[in-house]
Simulated scan of single mutants.
Amino acid sequence: MNHFTVIAEDADRTLAFYVGLLGMTVGHRPDLGFPGAWLYAGGPQALLHVYFDRPVPPQRAGVIDHMAFTAQGLKDVKARFDEQGVKYDLRRQAGAGTWQLFCFDPNGAKVELDFDASESL
């Protein structure tokens, strides 16, 4: 997978979610002739592209159910979600014990954060 793209209804709320809440960083983005952002998660490649200039299509979900990211610091991430009142569903994956935190971004995109089974609350 190269990247996902999210169409943002509200640029500030979208960046607050992915940067402020999830901990991604805004990084290099070439001048593409329209407003947006490329978000990084510690690696050299942007994982998430965000458009700020187009309307959200009426059929939002399409065939993609969700996007998942490997994450660290379950206790701290959960605390940030709780402090900001962001709804989520936290569960352990059967068999592997991986912690999975499911939520929705401000635009309605379903996001999964996967934490190692050894992490504790």
Rank of each mutant, 00 (worst) to 15 (best):
Val26Pro: 05
Thr5Pro: 01
Val56Ile: 15
Ala68Met: 05
Gln72Ala: 12
Gly36His: 07
Phe102Leu: 14
Asp10Phe: 00
Asp116Ile: 03
Asp65Val: 03
Phe4Arg: 10
Ala96Gly: 10
Gly23Ile: 13
Gln72Pro: 03
Tyr40Lys: 03
Asp116Met: 13
Trp38Arg: 08
Arg54Tyr: 04
Asn2Arg: 10
Tyr18Leu: 14
Val63Ala: 12
Gly62Thr: 04
Gly42Phe: 04
Gly108Ser: 01
Glu83Ala: 14
Leu90Gln: 01
Gly62Glu: 10
Gly36Thr: 05
Gln100Ile: 15
Arg80Gly: 00
Asp76His: 08
Ala109Asn: 15
Gly95Lys: 03
Arg60Phe: 01
Ala109Ile: 14
Phe115Glu: 11
Glu112Gly: 03
Thr14Asp: 01
Pro35Glu: 12
Ser118Ala: 13
Arg54Asp: 02
Lys75Tyr: 01
Leu113Met: 15
Ser118Pro: 00
Ala46Cys: 07
Ala96Gln: 10
Ala94Ile: 05
Pro106Arg: 11
Gly23Thr: 07
Pro44Cys: 05
Tyr51Trp: 10
Gly62Tyr: 00
Ala68Lys: 01
Ala71Lys: 05
His49Asn: 03
Glu9Ala: 15
Phe115His: 08
Arg91Gln: 14
Glu119Cys: 10
Lys110Met: 05
Phe69Glu: 03
Thr5Gln: 13
Ala8Phe: 12
Gly36Asn: 11
Asp65Tyr: 07
Asp10Leu: 07
Ala117Asp: 05
Glu119Ile: 11
Asp82His: 06
Gly108Ala: 00
Gln100Thr: 09
Ala79Tyr: 01
Phe69Val: 09
Ala46Gln: 08
Phe4Gln: 12
Pro44Glu: 15
Thr5Ile: 06
Asp82Tyr: 04
Gly62Cys: 09
Ala94Leu: 10
His66Ile: 03
Val56Asn: 14
Val77Ala: 02
Val26Cys: 07
Ser118Lys: 12
Ala46Gly: 11
Lys75Arg: 11
Gln100Ala: 10
Asp10Arg: 01
Asp82Ala: 12
Phe52Cys: 02
Leu32Pro: 04
Asn2Val: 04
Trp38Lys: 10
Trp99Thr: 12
Asp31Gly: 03
Asp31Val: 08
Ala8Asp: 01
Asp105Ile: 08
Trp99Arg: 02
Val77Leu: 00
Pro58Ile: 12
Ala94Gly: 07
Ala96Tyr: 10
Gly33Val: 07
Gly33Trp: 01
Met24Thr: 02
Met1His: 12
Leu21Met: 12
Glu9Phe: 03
Arg80Thr: 02
Gln45Tyr: 01
Ala61Leu: 13
Asp82Gln: 11
Leu48His: 13
Ala71Ser: 14
Gln72His: 13
Ser120Ala: 11
Leu39Glu: 08
Pro35Val: 06
Gly33Arg: 00
Val63Tyr: 11
Thr70Phe: 09
Val111Thr: 05
Met24Asp: 01
Phe17Val: 08
Gly73Leu: 10
